[in-house]
Every structure is written in structure tokens, then in C-alpha cells.
């Protein structure tokens, strides 16, 4: 999940999710960066409103939490 975490991190700090930034974050976290995966990540996230995707979860997450709690 490190690529996705990196993207989320950048999203949270308000930085652009581009190749350079993703690589910088991953390298700072000690990860060996695979350029192809970074490119794929950025391509996949290009048209995505992350906030939107997260909002969808914001509802589901606590629900899920409740559901899994015995």
C-alpha cells in the first residue's frame, strides 16, 4: 500500500500528486521506488477526486467498524 499511502499523504498535506513528489515521499520512507508503479498510480488518480472517494468511505468506515465489532 505504500504507493497509495504516499498519494494520500500528499493529498493531506495539499501537495500535488505527481511523479516527483510521490518518489520523494517514498524515498524518504526508505522505499525502493518502481517508476512504472508511480506512473500508473498518477495515471490512475488523474481524474479522481480523492476527497470524494474518501467521503464515500467516511460513511462506510465507521459503519464497517461497527459491523465488525462483536
Amino acid at each position: 500500500m505504500e504507493y497509495i499511502y504516499a498519494a494520500m499523504l500528499l493529498h493531506t498535506t495539499g501537495q500535488e500528486i505527481n511523479e516527483e513528489n510521490v518518489k520523494k515521499v517514498l524515498e524518504a520512507a526508505g522505499s525502493e521506488v518502481d517508476e512504472a508503479r508511480v506512473k500508473a498510480l498518477i495515471a490512475a488518480l488523474e481524474d479522481v477526486d480523492i476527497e470524494d472517494a474518501i467521503q464515500k468511505t467516511a460513511v462506510a468506515a465507521p459503519a464497517a467498524a461497527a459491523a465488525t465489532t462483536p
Partner: peptide, 8 residues
């Protein structure tokens, strides 16, 4: 996957 990261 985004949702999963957020939930995690």
C-alpha cells in the same frame, strides 16, 4: 484502494 488506505 483509496478508501482502504483512509479507513486503515
Amino acid at each position: 484502494l483509496l478508501a482502504r488506505a483512509y479507513a486503515q
